[in-house]
Design a protein around this nucleic acid. Structure first.
Lengths: 244, 244
DNA sequence: CGGTTACTTGATGCATATCAAAGAGGGTGG
DNA sequence: CCACCCTCTTTGATATGCATCAAGTAACCG
């Protein structure tokens, strides 16, 4: 596991929901379009939750009683096949939403990769706010649409890209998500292990490792302590990622 | 290409929007939760469109001015890499929705595989109805959530399943979708070509063909004229699909 | 009925998986 | 504070599932 990020990147203000005004990722979350009065309605039903590294937040198939906004740390989403093969369907960072489902169970399991802080909403009560706060539902639809677009990109990656193209796409994706959180694009932080990356890209840990080495050797990236990656030749990565 | 399905399965009643009451896939569409008065508001902004086999309905990256409900025929959704590699991200059948996007461009290209009938809605005007018909937005969110769950399953398939498991999953998926349209589960109709299937499953046409032959040889399926597939051993397919 | 396209089948090759082991962190206890 | 140990990562050798290359065959259309 990795170093805690709660201290390094305090989020959603301090401990108290009343201080969402300080939330560094508000512009990415569910809450983005709400004014302070509307926020108050949300704050009434949310609870701030801290989860230690390695703990589960949701289990695939379990009743979906809550939905969550990630405000600190990082999680992996995954599904398992009958024989134990794993597919990591996504990584969540501050600002990301967890628990959206049309049915009444979670569609994926979610595990904290680092200590994680979440804003937890009872699903029923959040849905109860929809009529009062239509912006909330609008926002949820927009977030779902964005996730769908990302899922389509991931299908292209999994179905048609080579190992190098997959890795390049992955690094750029993380870089862009850092930028969305107003972090520098460049030393990309990898809070996940090689096997998480492998299960996300449809590869093995060995192939991930070899491909990283190859990128290092050809000078397009370089590695820093704590699994941080400097993108030395972003253009080369972009061309690689697009299959040029 | 394939035989037209418009004659065989008349949809959305006859020509006139006023006759949505006869629509055979209404329970699957955007329209499902609306009463007749509410339907009337939709009917005012929709136009029924017929598209010949092979024609494009949307192009990835083009302005998303319309959204569509499929009421007859079948389409493929796809994305291309820079060098021409193609990834088919989905197939659409009657009842399916096309054009959902958070941005202002389409995220995928859509091509008719057979003659297709669509209910076309100007996106702006549909969004304009949201405040008046909140059920509509609720429904769209539910449909997006369902698509997201399907996309996650597809990621597992692409990232971690073998060729045989992919094919088994694919046949079962089509069978279940036929059932959702109140068609028999069993002679599964394949309006798409082998290369469409290959690009959907992350395989080549040759591998798709060989795997189908293998299923035929082992007796789990049998082929009928016009690319219809009988699922002779559904249980075996289900176990294969889940990686048992 | 002939031409064209799509599908099937076969032979071979390669990218990535698998198997195996050595090397690097990083956390803990002495 | 250092040394040990555990786990994760890297590197190497080999294997294999699927891709690629190449015909042959069947289906469809005009």
């Amino acid at each position: 596991m990795e170093r805690a990020q709660l201290g390094a990147a305090p989020v959603c203000g301090f401990d108290l929901p009343e201080q969402c005004g300080n939330c560094e990722v508000r512009h990415l979350t569910l809450c983005a379009p709400l004014d302070s009065g509307e926020m108050q309605r949300l704050v009434e039903i949310l609870k701030v939750i801290d989860v230690p590294a390695g703990a589960s937040v949701t289990e695939e198939g379990e009743p979906a009683e809550h939905v969550f906004n990630v405000t600190g740390g990082a999680l992996r989403l995954y599904k398992l096949l009958a024989d134990g093969r794993r597919s990591v369907t996504g990584f969540l960072f501050p600002g990301d939403f967890l628990g959206l489902t049309a049915g009444d169970t979670y569609t994926c399991s979610a595990e904290a990769m680092t200590p994680v802080r979440l804003c937890r909403f009872p699903r029923r009560r959040l849905e109860g706010l929809f009529s009062e706060l239509p912006k909330l539902e609008r926002r949820l639809l927009a977030m779902a649409s964005n996730e769908l677009a990302a899922a389509q990109d991931q299908m292209v990656l999994l179905g048609r890209k080579t190992a190098a193209e997959k890795l390049a796409s992955f690094l750029l994706q993380l870089s862009r998500r850092q930028e969305a959180r107003h972090l520098p694009p460049d030393p990309v932080s990898l809070p996940m292990g090689r096997s998480d990356i492998a299960d996300y890209l449809g590869l093995t840990t060995e192939t991930v490792s070899r491909t990283i080495t190859q990128f290092k050797t050809t000078g397009v990236i370089s590695l820093q302590p704590q699994g941080r990656v400097v993108l030395r030749d972003r253009l080369a990565l972009e061309e690689c990622a697009e299959g040029a």
